[in-house]
């Protein structure tokens, strides 16, 4: 998700504009000049200013190069996986899936699905993925449900204890 500074700058200007407009719609406090609109208005103007400066490349020269250490001669650099940019979004998508189905399927089944998919996506073998998907949710359930008393949904499958 590498975007040019022009794009992110323009996005910030737009966001700042919307913020400032939204701030102007805030209700006032009777008998008082300073209300809930002041702070967001300042932020909105600030965002627009920063966005414009970023789009014009102000401060770009300060950006430090990536922390990644260059490889030694002769050292093999592992190649990034295919669709690297898009694979990253699997993790938040799994969280959305969890929110959507955990009430009906229950914690154990939903967590098992998430862990199975993640392990495979990270290149783990099927054996590792299945073992983790079976043991992981039970361990998490023990820690959060039994010890920390977090009300995880039972759904279709409840543990006997």
């Amino acid at each position: 998700m590498q975007l040019s500074d022009k794009v992110t700058g323009a996005l910030l200007i737009a966001l700042g504009g919307v913020t400032a407009y939204g701030a102007s719609l805030q209700p006032g406090v009777p008998g008082q000049d300073v209300g809930p609109s002041v702070f967001p208005a300042v932020i909105g103007l600030g965002l627009m200013g920063c966005g414009a400066m970023i789009a014009f490349g102000v401060g770009h020269s300060f950006e430090a190069p990536d922390d990644t250490i260059p490889a030694e001669p002769g050292e093999t650099v592992p190649r990034p996986p295919r669709f690297a940019e898009w694979r990253a979004f699997l993790a938040p998508l799994l969280l959305v899936l969890y929110v959507l189905v955990s009430e009906t399927l229950g914690f154990l089944i939903t967590a098992a699905i998430c862990i199975l998919v993640m392990t495979r996506a990270l290149g783990g073998s099927w054996r590792l993925a299945v073992a983790l998907a079976l043991l992981g949710p039970v361990g998490l359930h023990l820690a959060f449900y039994e010890l920390l008393r977090v009300p995880l949904p039972d759904g279709l499958l409840a543990l006997p204890w």
Partner: peptide, 20 residues
């Protein structure tokens, strides 16, 4: 320990931790 065995658990911990 391979990353494939740690990151899935971390993902679930993110969900559980926020939920709690």
């Amino acid at each position: 320990a391979p990353r494939a065995s740690i990151m899935p658990v971390i993902l679930m911990l993110c969900a559980m931790g926020a939920f709690a």
